[in-house]
Write a protein that binds this DNA or RNA. Structure first.
Lengths: 150, 150
DNA sequence: TACCAAAAGTTGAAAATTTAATCATTCCGG
DNA sequence: CCGGAATGATTAAATTTTCAACTTTTGGTA
């Protein structure tokens, strides 16, 4: 089975289920976040990563890695967040090439507001519809995927 | 726990694992498909859905639903696929508003070529790194998510 | 039949993302 | 210490996606 060219019937079925479910889920979460807080999931992710970082700041490359976005995309998105007043930039003292992105108080407040609704949606659409044991399996599965890639 | 404002530690951990793993995975698959076949995942999905439909054709709205894309996005993407010669359009005889998208032989051939590599990548990066029992759990979990939304 | 709301699809412009090239700085082998 | 390779980040242009508006046709209903 495992060496075959195509996928086994159950593999195919589960893979397609993941594709469909995850696409619908991220669509729904994106819509919700945009409608309620005028924020994209990509922007939200950036704010989350910054909020969890020491001193609420990260170098652009670290932020790109943790938010899983290309550097170029991050530059553009941070520029947008900067114009909203949620993020600001600072030169890195130890590396003249480097730039810190840092979460402003206003950005932190906006994140907190958005997170209340976003987390509720995550619970409603994901956590609560999955059996607890299976949620743990999902966690293990995707940690393995991430490990295979990272 | 389940009524709380935030997520429990394990819920949070598994949710984040899914976010990270799925983001890395779709990045990798997208890159692979683009590099080897000059095709995006969105285009690939459309070709797959058409290839599985009776007579290899679907109304635009059905195709949008099954490929999980907005109508507008689908119109643009199908236009691109049409210019590549992979898809063509035909008026619907029973509904003058309707349009069929249909997979050409050339499109079918391109899909088959792409699928060989894509499926291999899916196996390599997803199927093979997940325990069989947990893959089934992932399938059930995302079917539940899709059911909650659809 | 005559409306009028809803559905199918497209369009064009705006917004976001990707791609490739560029610039400045840092790192490292010789 | 020098010179080139590599890193960090940005920029401009091309591509893709979203958003809102619009046209045509259908379906229901009064």
């Amino acid at each position: 089975m495992s060496g075959s060219h195509w996928l086994a019937a159950t593999e195919q079925r589960d893979w397609r289920a993941y594709i469909e479910g995850s696409a619908r889920l991220s669509d729904a979460l994106e819509q919700d976040l945009k409608a309620r807080h005028g924020m994209s999931l990509a922007e939200y992710e950036i704010l989350v990563q910054l909020s969890e970082a020491p001193e609420r700041r990260l170098r652009m490359a670290e932020l790109a890695a943790s938010a899983i976005q290309s550097r170029s995309r991050l530059t553009h998105t941070v520029a947008r967040l900067e114009s909203k007043g949620f993020v600001s930039r600072a030169d890195c003292p130890t590396d003249k090439r480097g730039v810190y992105a840092l979460l402003t108080d206003e950005g932190f407040a906006a994140l907190r507001r958005a997170a209340v609704d976003h987390v509720a949606a995550v619970r409603d659409l994901f956590i609560d519809v999955i059996d607890a044991g299976e949620l743990a399996a999902v966690g293990r599965a995707f940690r393995a995927v991430a490990a295979r890639l990272g």
